[in-house]
Design a protein around this nucleic acid. Structure first.
Lengths: 341, 341
DNA sequence: TTGAAAGCGATACCAA
DNA sequence: TTGGTATCGCTTTCAA
């Protein structure tokens, strides 16, 4: 026999197919002796239930598909890990469909795409309107993660208020502020995340009548970082200042160069505040505006599960707020000459 | 009608189900008028074929599953993009199943896992024996990518000869060799990739009776890099030397520190050779031992497709060889005092 | 506690 | 060129 079916098992065990199905699905009303006979038959034949057939019959796949940009950052790793746990606990399997190459989006407009053979859909860091020209090809529950849209459930992060938080913290230190902005690659549209973050910073400073004493834009490259550090070292204010960087990577990269070529000492010559709460930042003692990535993943899972249970008859738009993780990099070292406290 | 089936379409168009099926599958023997009627009915009902049912009936899913370690490097991005193209061209869809968290491996031992509802399986950077305790739960064609096993088809890279190639190149330059090795994180088993690469280097040097004048092991951290650079600057041989680094990242990181704190000039004081052929290396003019990642992805796709067509009755173990991409970092600048040419 | 039979939605054989 | 019908493997009434 090529691939034994439930029927083969039934024949072998001398029972009906119903009984075998019940054994497989742990139904209560089965006598122990029958169960044993069936189990033995399963064993002997090496029977494995056909999941596709079960899926077909029940109309449910127990699958959740996630559409996401090609993955290269710890952000997605944390997010997906947090997401996966609760889903798995409820018997759902998670499959990933990265948007490989820009042209491949076409694939996701096809309703017969594998990604849509699922009970629910998660769209990560993408806007449905851009992804789909017209109506979405998937009919089931859909949740946006790290993105927002008026007609979809969403779990996202408030980047604007993250910018505000950073700016307010910076203002509180009462030091001149140097702003290390991330430049967009030429031609790139500028990530909405950075746009909001930047707006939050600039608007908040502006509302307090403050402008950075110096703003440096930098492409995230080796050479760019070095040049930025040179500029900062040359044009910095006379006393200590607070360097507000748009990302942790920028902050850490520039810190290196400020030290090596500029001789600037963190904690004495300047304070440093980053963005993202990356592991690298934590390891380096960098204060940072933290996005609760794990909590967002868990929230997405919970929205997804609710929707799958059909308990969601209202639109859920959950937006997470930033927190600020203070660390060594914003601690001014005792320096009796200028700062008695 | 909730979700129209093929039967509804047939009734609506006043034809048999067979005819509708034929229209859907572009069968030739359909009159234009019938086709038009059916198409109209499909349109009117908003009918979308049930892929799950088709899958059930045909016994094929048109899906390929890839099991891979959680993704954080451009390596996998290139690999998967190269892989995806040919598969898609043949009508196969690719779904990714990252091994999220170490415990989640359990999930992949379950034959009913979503990942196995596919026509073929690709196991990336994993050894089946470690992944599965016993027999694999998937019965269809299986291909290993970036890994090897005696009983599976595989597409992999010859790390040992990559090490040899680097060593031979280094020997050819006839300069003292400083070896910048990557240290394994404490407790980690040491990636087989690095083990082979290192062995290739050391054995080749040894065969020529050469030992590095200095070997420095470094954890890939900011602090580690700086310390390594200090050591190199302090203990380097008197004249120019060749610095052989285990990865591009290590090479580029140390170059920075050698320049900033040691004042060593690349191309005059030392030459630098890296490993991996990363984009960063190319951008920085770093010579590097290159792994043909894209070609490997394409090769995996082709093996997969052959297997799917049932044309593979012999074991395929394809191992790719490294090439060396020479760039500025191994060009010794004209220095009349020592090197007239 | 057990089983016979209907049916999920598509495809394909065989006839017409 | 078309259509009736069996069939894929499973779950689920309904009856016994």
């Amino acid at each position: 026999m090529d691939k034994p079916s439930l029927r083969d098992v039934a024949r072998r065990a001398g029972v009906g197919t119903t009984t075998v199905s019940r054994v497989l699905n742990q139904h209560p009303n089965i006598s122990d002796t029958t169960r044993a006979r069936v189990t033995a038959a399963i064993e002997q034949l090496g029977y494995v239930p056909d999941v596709g057939a079960r899926h077909f019959r029940l109309g449910r796949t127990h699958a959740v598909s996630a559409l996401l940009p090609m993955i290269g950052t710890p952000f997605y790793e944390t997010l997906l890990t947090a997401l996966h746990g609760p889903l798995e606990a409820q018997g759902y399997d998670l499959a990933l469909f990265p948007l490989l190459g820009s042209q491949r989006v076409r694939r996701f407009r096809d309703a017969s795409a594998l990604a849509y053979r699922a009970d629910a859909l998660l769209i990560v860091s993408q806007h449905p309107d851009e992804l789909y020209g017209g109506p979405p090809p998937f009919r089931g529950p859909t949740v946006l993660l790290d993105a927002q849209h008026p007609t979809y459930h969403s779990v996202s992060f408030d980047n604007h208020s993250a910018g505000r938080l950073a700016a307010e913290y910076a203002l509180g230190r009462r030091l001149p502020i140097v702003f290390l902005d991330g430049a967009d690659a030429p031609g790139a549209p500028g990530s909405p995340v950075f746009v909001a973050r930047r707006a939050g910073i600039v608007q908040t400073l502006g509302r307090h009548g403050i402008r950075p004493v110096l703003t440096v834009s930098v492409l995230p490259e080796q050479e760019g970082l070095r040049l930025a550090a040179q500029q900062i070292a040359a044009r910095r204010p006379p006393g200590p200042f607070l360097l507000l960087a748009m990302t942790d990577d920028l902050a850490l990269g520039v810190r290196q160069h400020l030290h090596d070529s500029g001789g600037l000492r963190l904690g004495e010559d300047y304070l440093l505040l980053g963005f993202d709460g990356s592991a690298a930042a934590a390891a380096a003692g960098l204060s940072s505006v933290v996005q609760p990535v794990q909590a967002m993943g868990e929230a997405a899972a919970s929205v997804l599960l609710e929707a799958l249970r059909g308990e969601l008859n209202t639109l859920v738009q959950r937006q997470f707020s930033p927190t600020l993780r203070e660390d060594r990099s914003t601690a001014l070292q005792a320096d009796p000459q200028q700062h008695p406290t």
